[in-house]
Write a protein that binds this DNA or RNA. Structure first.
Length: 314
DNA sequence: GTCAACAGAGTTGATATAGC
DNA sequence: GCTATATCAACTCTGTTGAC
């Protein structure tokens, strides 16, 4: 049997690991009687931990949210994951949390056992992330949206579209999706009566949020839907491109999911887009497959420019 | 340093009560 | 019927103190 202090920590760890425990379950885990569990729960409460107890058939003990964050007991894997996440956040795409993340990181590294510190250092030393020069997202905006998602409250915000237009949108927010180094809000657009994806760095929420709404069933896999939405965003330049290769092979070479339609066994067609025709030309050149452009004189001109530049290079 | 006495804390069992 | 809460009493363990 563990001594009292060790058992209290173990009990706290169990309560943090799972939402609901019955007295007999905890007693079994800690090799004491349910009476002792009750004493220990009482001690945790005296120490400020909000242990909630529910009587009845579906009853049990659970650790509630208190006024202050209680000390968290992380196992080895969880501790490594938190440190790596904090290091990523220090140089991440959410503005305003870099310094806070660094402070939390210092605290955590101070108490990290040396065996775990070695693992974290190894991960840090042998992984490289490219610096992000794109728009960052305000942490406060992200928190406001996430809270509205959680509480099922309508969200009104000023939205700057890709062509610079400003509009006020009223949405029922559902999910925040992080893909391709950008944050997106997946929401039901109340005025357009349809699902929409919004870039969070273009959102300026109007507070307070509300009123509350009844959640709708989500239309399948939100992450995939957002990825597809990003790939088919309203680019300034779009082109219909026939690729002389099987659709499966082309799909494997594309950096983002796209709607590809097979044209027989050896050809397929898709419609890539970009705000810059030269970038679109480079993107198609890197496919490593023969292709034919239909329409889009801007893309044709960009391909010609690119081809001439490459020829001059040799 | 060792031992006994003592106090206090911790654990357990039993029982009654209340909520679901 | 199951589970948590509250109370009381008995037992065990541990730390402290004082005598030798």
């Amino acid at each position: 049997m563990l001594d009292t202090s060790a058992r209290l920590l173990k009990l706290l760890s169990l309560l943090q690991a799972r939402q609901n425990w019955t007295g007999p379950e905890l007693a079994d885990r800690l090799e004491v009687t349910t009476r002792t569990i009750r004493n220990d729960v009482e001690r945790l409460r005296e120490l400020g931990y909000p242990v909630q107890a529910t009587p009845g058939v579906t009853g049990g003990y659970r650790l509630g949210a208190g006024a202050n964050l209680p000390p968290l007991l992380l196992d080895d894997e969880e501790a490594v994951a938190v440190v790596v996440s904090l290091r990523t956040a220090v140089g991440g795409t959410v503005a305003g949390i870099e310094e806070i993340s660094a402070r939390a990181l210092v605290k955590l590294q101070q108490v990290l056992p040396s065996r775990l510190r070695r693992r974290v250092d190894a991960l840090q030393a042998y992984t490289v992330s490219t610096p992000w020069a794109g728009p960052t997202v305000d942490a406060g905006v992200l928190t406001t949206i996430a809270t509205a998602c959680r509480d099922h409250e309508r969200l009104r915000f000023d939205y700057r579209s890709h062509d610079g237009d400003h509009a006020v949108r009223t949405t029922e927010p559902y999910r925040l999706v992080h893909t391709r180094r950008r944050w997106y809000l997946f929401a039901w657009d109340v005025e357009r009566d349809d699902w929409r994806t919004f870039r969070v760095d273009r959102i300026q929420p109007r507070t307070p949020t509300g009123p509350r709404f009844t959640p709708r069933p989500l239309p399948g896999d939100v992450a995939s839907r957002v990825s597809r939405g990003v790939a088919t965003a309203p680019w300034r330049y779009r082109a219909r491109v026939i690729v002389h290769a099987p659709a499966e092979r082309v799909a494997q070479k594309l950096p983002v999911p796209a709607e590809i339609q097979p044209l027989g066994e050896d050809r397929c067609v898709f419609e890539p887009g970009s705000d810059n025709p030269l970038m679109l030309a480079g993107y198609l050149a890197m496919l490593g497959e023969d292709f034919t452009v239909e329409g889009s004189p801007e893309l044709v001109a960009a391909l010609r420019t690119l081809a001439e530049r490459l020829l001059r290079a040799i």
